[in-house]
Design a protein around this nucleic acid. Structure first.
Length: 513
RNA sequence: GCGGGAGUAGCUCAGGGGUAGAGCAUUAGCUUCCCAAGCUAAGGGUCGUGGGUUCGAUUCCCAUCUCCCGCUCCA
């Protein structure tokens, strides 16, 4: 799909009530979007599919809905407080953005490399008699390098601790760091981006009242690990699943709903015996890919991507990537998180986060394999996978184009439309109404009598409705209707009593498992 | 933050120093027994915001805001 088609997809999403820009009447809010009437249906259906495949289909996976607000120490333990405060600096010439701390660390390493080079020369020169410590203090050049390094390193650590951005800028200048791309030292001010949002608990001023909005749902699972394990009498391995909002103050939120500041995750933490992590990592990798494929998603648009740089909590990580209109991007992450989180919480809280294993007769902190999928990304993946412009014959048998969302029927927002062939015929409309009133208790239906029948079909195609039931004159005689299938345009004449069964079979989640 | 693009009707866009247009959509009606764009009528816009030039600005100038795309990170 080209960029133009991506634009069309964004327009279509708005025009047909899937996604609206947030606060549009006030010119919008960057990186925040609202889900419209069809959007919320699609989103809920994705959640249902995930929840059923995780919780309902696994005896050893249970659900949880933890609060968004958590004790501040949670984020200290998780590493987010330290890892999510990036000082950033831009080079004005190359317009590249860098992490100031990374630049400085590299700069400091270069100084030490210079000193090491001198030492290496000296070692060769003096051979066995070489006294390295003595040389470090007595050789002026080496001593200067070390002194400069230690001095700047000290200032660097202090500045990072205090969040002193101007000081970081000064250090960059003193280190004479040049942009590797442009070669210039044309730097902007160093700015800090705290990737966690925070709010105030009560009216207490100062640090104590500072409360973060969770940047991931996982920590709610970890801190409830023992509560859940005990109340559900689970034995290892077992999992805890959660769907919920998370918040990240992204530097730049872009690409529609792909990267949002407020987003929703579907996470499952699988608690396992240490040493079995690779086995379960592979199991979930495979299981999750099957989950994606069973929706009928084009296999060419899905792939694994191994992480080169592992996050601070992981010892193995793979992404499930989807080919979005703007390229292959991360849709879901599967991480082997070791015992990092539970151990951290155990340490910081002073509470045991251990599992007593009756088989081995010992207690230990479980290891964790996580599957974490972005719900909004899944939504976008389903939209872009479904969005199709195609040529179909019109009333005269000529070519005409239609835009159709080819969702898996289980995900489609509206399941069935009931369409009387003519509006100005009371018998037809009354019968349509009656069918609608009967079906509406089973699944989401729409009754529509406006405009020509062809146009109504196209309207339903545009929101991805898998079935259209049309009431015509023959219906009045023998209680049959036509049922039209969205993708093939094929119509069958069936008895009214069969509609519910056919639609239910088509939209069933059962076929996905 | 820097660079680029763009803000005119619900959507897609045209226009142009003299007071705003099209197609689709919406509403009402007509027509039509199965795959969009048949007929009639109606509603809907302080042309992103503020300032300047001008008799007059949606149009020209300046500023500003917002959105979109690219640059680090992640679900």
């Amino acid at each position: 799909m080209s960029t133009d088609l991506f634009k069309d997809l964004v327009s279509h999403s708005k025009e047909y009530g899937f996604i609206f820009p947030s606060s549009e009447v006030y010119d919008g809010l960057s990186g925040v979007y609202d889900y419209g009437p069809y959007g919320v249906e699609l989103k809920n259906n994705i959640k249902t599919y995930w929840w059923r495949s995780m919780v309902q289909n696994h005896e050893n996976i249970v659900g949880l809905d933890a609060a968004i607000m958590m004790h501040p120490k949670t984020w200290k333990a998780s590493g987010h407080v330290d890892a999510f405060n990036d000082p950033l600096v831009d080079n004005k010439t190359s317009q590249k953005r860098y992490r100031a701390d990374v630049l400085i660390e590299e700069g400091l390493e270069k100084i030490m490399a210079k000193a090491e080079k001198e030492l290496e020369k000296a070692r060769k020169r003096f051979g066995d008699e070489f006294d390295e410590n003595k040389y470090k203090t007595e050789n002026q050049r080496v001593a200067d390098y070390i002194k400069q390094h230690d001095h700047l390193h000290g200032r660097f650590v202090t500045a990072m601790g205090k969040g002193d951005m101007p000081e970081l800028k000064l250090i960059i200048e003193e280190l004479e760091i040049a942009d590797p791309v442009s070669g210039t030292r044309d730097w902007t001010e160093v700015r800090q981006f705290n990737l966690m949002f925070y709010t105030q608990l009560g009216n207490i001023a100062g640090e104590e009242g500072k409360l973060y909005l969770r940047p991931e749902t996982a920590q709610g699972i970890f801190v409830n690990f023992l509560n859940v394990q005990k109340t559900t009498r689970q034995k290892l391995p077992f999992g805890i699943a959660q769907i919920g909002k998370a918040f990240r103050n992204e530097i730049i939120a872009r690409q529609f709903i792909f990267r949002m500041r407020e987003f929703e995750q579907m996470e499952m933490q699988y608690f396992i015996q240490p040493g079995t992590e690779m086995q379960w990592y592979n199991y979930w990798k495979e299981t999750r890919m099957k989950w994606h494929l069973s929706l009928g998603t084009d296999p060419a648009k899905l792939r694994f991507h191994d992480h080169d740089n592992l996050a601070h909590y992981a010892n193995a990580a793979v992404d499930v990537q989807f080919e979005f209109p703007f390229g292959f991007k991360e849709l879901e992450g599967i991480h082997s998180r070791t015992d990092f989180d539970l151990s951290s919480h155990q340490e910081l809280s002073g509470k045991k986060m251990q599992y007593f294993d009756p088989e081995t007769n010992e207690s230990y902190v479980p290891y964790v394999v996580e599957t974490s999928i972005g719900l909004d990304r899944m939504f976008l993946a389903m939209m872009s996978n479904a969005y199709t412009e195609e040529t179909v014959p019109d009333a005269d048998g000529k070519d005409s184009t239609r835009i159709v969302l080819k969702f898996h029927p289980a995900l489609a927002p509206v399941k069935c439309a009931i369409l009387p062939l003519l509006k100005n015929n009371d018998d037809l409309t009354a019968m349509g109404r009656k069918i609608f009133d009967d079906l509406k208790f089973s699944f989401l239906c729409q009754y529509d009598e406006k405009d020509a029948i062809g146009r109504r079909y196209r309207r339903q195609d545009a929101i991805g409705t898998p079935f259209c039931v049309t009431v015509d004159h023959q219906s009045l005689e023998d209680q049959t209707v036509t049922i039209r299938e969205r993708d093939t345009l094929k119509q069958d004449r069936i008895h009214i009593s069969k509609i519910q069964g056919i639609v239910e079979e088509g939209i069933s989640f059962r076929s996905l498992f």
